[in-house]
Nucleic acid binder design. Structure first.
Lengths: 188, 188
DNA sequence: ACCTGAACACCGTTCAAGT
DNA sequence: ACCTGAACACCGTTCAAGT
């Protein structure tokens, strides 16, 4: 006799994302997720292979959402040098909003690696802006330079590596301005 | 009646660092560390408050060692623009050597934050080179730009975010070259 | 076909008892 | 003063038994 479904994969992932931000990765336990969706922990294994997969799904959903944000940010600015600034600010805003999830997306570990298609989707707007700025040949290199800097800046910001004085907001604007210039008007 | 010491804090931290690289952060269990130094797990608590503190000590030691490497790299190159390249390469080499520990240093979590003094020590060479390059006023901003980019690049490299084709080594050299130019010869 | 209680292996940590 | 076995609370996960 079938039992009516008491939860769903979608609900589980949503609960997981909420827990991740409120309680950290350590607080994201199967027990807590189960409680949150109103089910016993073993039932989660009907929808998810295990905690590792749940974490991967959360990272995936986060990368997808970041892609949306970047797409919207890129659409709002036609001048490529200013679009770089807009994109970088969008990354930073997203990271401040969901620090734990943002961290997860760029966390190492092989197993939880983002799906290549999601990765391509999330980086598409940056790649497009980079191509506008430096041409197709250097587009990938330029996109990687921008994403590396933006990701590194907010990662260090989130990890508390910028505690040695100075204005962090100004440091961000300094960096993104120089970055845009360097790509738009390369020396030598 | 005193018992002769069967291990030491130093040995514990060394074993922890070894385990971190060989088995990952998840494999860094108190049990494994205890086995590694030839003692039972509860004995570790005579030298360390708990696993959290052990992880923090490992991060601390790693940041310290990274500082040494950067100091040596900076000393090997007097031209500031080339010193930036040398420093960035040193960061990358260190990250490739000890990926898990490198990750730990920049991991978030408040609790495991690096000691400010160690942080200052590790960033001193970068700050010095930045000052040579752009002057004292912009030195901190420039240093943050370089470290953010370098850290972001290798973090993404380690996390497998650069899997969309293209030559990653070339992307690194492209980035560091443009970075050096941007700082040495700012536009506008 | 989903859900559950019970159970297992494993973890971090505490503590009384040994030497 | 350090070390240990035993114990506790808490994980992730499995599985037979319920509906």
């Amino acid at each position: 006799m079938p039992t009516p479904d008491r939860t769903s994969l979608d609900e589980i992932v949503r609960a997981g994302r909420r827990l991740l931000e409120s309680a950290g990765l350590d607080g994201l336990t199967m027990q807590a997720v189960a409680d949150s969706v109103g089910v016993r922990a073993p039932s989660l294994y009907k929808r998810v292979r295990g905690r590792t997969e749940l974490v991967a799904l959360i990272a995936e959903a986060t990368a997808y959402e970041l892609g949306d944000r970047l797409e919207a940010a890129a659409a709002a600015e036609s001048d490529p040098e200013r679009a770089v600034v807009t994109l970088a600010r969008a990354v930073r805003a997203f990271a401040h909003e969901r620090p734990a999830a943002f961290w997860l997306v760029f966390a190492p570990g092989g197993g939880a690696a983002i799906d290549p298609e999601t990765l391509r989707r999330a980086s598409a707007p940056v790649l497009r802006v980079a191509a506008d700025l430096v041409g197709d040949d250097d587009a990938l290199n330029a996109a990687r330079m921008v994403t590396a800097w933006a990701n590194g800046f907010v990662s260090m910001e989130l990890s508390g590596a910028f505690r040695l004085g100075g204005d962090v907001d100004l440091a961000f604007e300094f960096g993104v301005a120089r970055l845009g210039e360097a790509l738009a008007r390369p020396a030598a």
